[in-house]
């Protein structure tokens, strides 16, 4: 039995009337992606509880009745903008939603499909993958995060996002508040977990120190160095330069370091500027 503490004295207590609240409507959409974020949302253990608390208007992976033209309170969008069609859909989703949540590495950082941004030209990349063929669905464009085109209200990172955070986002919305952004790195959770530091001890190219926390150091707990899938720590505290210096001391080449940091960070506005502090000169 838990002890009860009432903040307001009994005699001053106000009866709060049960309001008849309309359930918030949500939509779950995908642009160019592996659909993994939707799969993750669809399979969280509390999905039935969520389904009772909100009205799901669209959920592309689960229902063919989904439509980007329906109005919703909250839109969850996964995927990068990689085609003209993606862009049209995104603009329509933004127009029809009050709140837009970018979900996962593709929507927030452009995904692995944009790792070569600034390294390979779009034409080179296209030819590597498709040769001389044409793709029919829609005109392909360089893969970019959705934030390059529309305003994103909240960011739910991960590849895919963690169950705990999906629940946290939805429950804060239901509570009438909003999800707090994490701007500290994976290292915090890695030390909490009692993991050894792979960077110090095994000289592994771990990106934990520049990557947004929230995964409870999932990979490092299995002795796999962080690859940065949750994206660089927001608010300009991803220190690419300091980490690159450490990597150089451990014998990694400039090319390797840049490529690794670009897998999930190629669109970060400060990446090249900070790397230039270590390697000199602005890279193309």
């Amino acid at each position: 039995m838990s002890m009860k503490t009432t903040i307001i004295p009994e005699d001053q207590k106000i009866e709060i009337k049960e309001e008849t609240k309309r359930k918030p409507t949500i939509g779950v959409y995908a642009l160019t992606s592996c659909y993994g974020c939707q799969l993750k949302i669809a399979t969280v253990s509390k999905i039935l509880e969520i389904a009772e608390s909100v009205d799901i208007e669209s959920f592309y992976m689960l229902s063919s009745d989904s439509s980007i033209h329906k109005k919703v309170d909250i839109a969850f969008v996964e995927g990068s903008v990689s085609t003209k069609k993606d862009l049209e859909e995104l603009l329509e989703i933004r127009k029809n939603s009050k709140t837009l949540v970018g979900v996962g590495a593709c929507a927030l950082q452009g995904g692995v499909q944009s790792w070569s941004n600034g390294i390979k030209s779009y034409d080179e990349l296209f030819e590597n993958v498709y040769g001389k063929n044409k793709i029919e669905i829609s005109e392909a464009i360089e893969a970019k995060p959705i934030e390059e085109y529309v305003e994103v209200d909240f960011r739910l990172p991960g590849c895919p996002p963690e169950e705990e955070e999906i629940i946290y986002f939805i429950s804060t919305f239901l509570f009438g508040s909003w999800p707090e952004e994490k701007d500290y790195p994976v290292c915090q959770e890695c030390r909490f977990a009692g993991n050894i530091c792979l960077l110090i001890e095994k000289n592994e190219p771990c990106l934990g120190s520049i990557t947004t926390a929230g995964c409870n150091a999932r990979c490092i707990s299995y002795n796999v160095p962080c690859i940065g899938c949750r994206g660089p720590v927001p608010n300009d505290v991803a220190w690419f330069d300091s980490l690159a210096k450490v990597f150089v001391e451990k014998g990694f080449t400039e090319e390797y370091i840049r490529e690794r940091m670009k897998i999930f960070g190629s669109h970060h506005p400060k990446l090249e500027e900070l790397l230039a502090k270590v390697f000199g000169g602005e890279k193309k």
């Binding site: 804060t172 508040s177 707090e180 290292c187 030390r191 120190s209 520049i210």
Partner: peptide, 22 residues
Amino acid sequence: LGCGNCTITCPTCRCYDVKDYP
């Protein structure tokens, strides 16, 4: 690196944050 290892491993760091999880 701003990783916080120095403070997390420190035997005397006392700072904490408070968060609500509805």
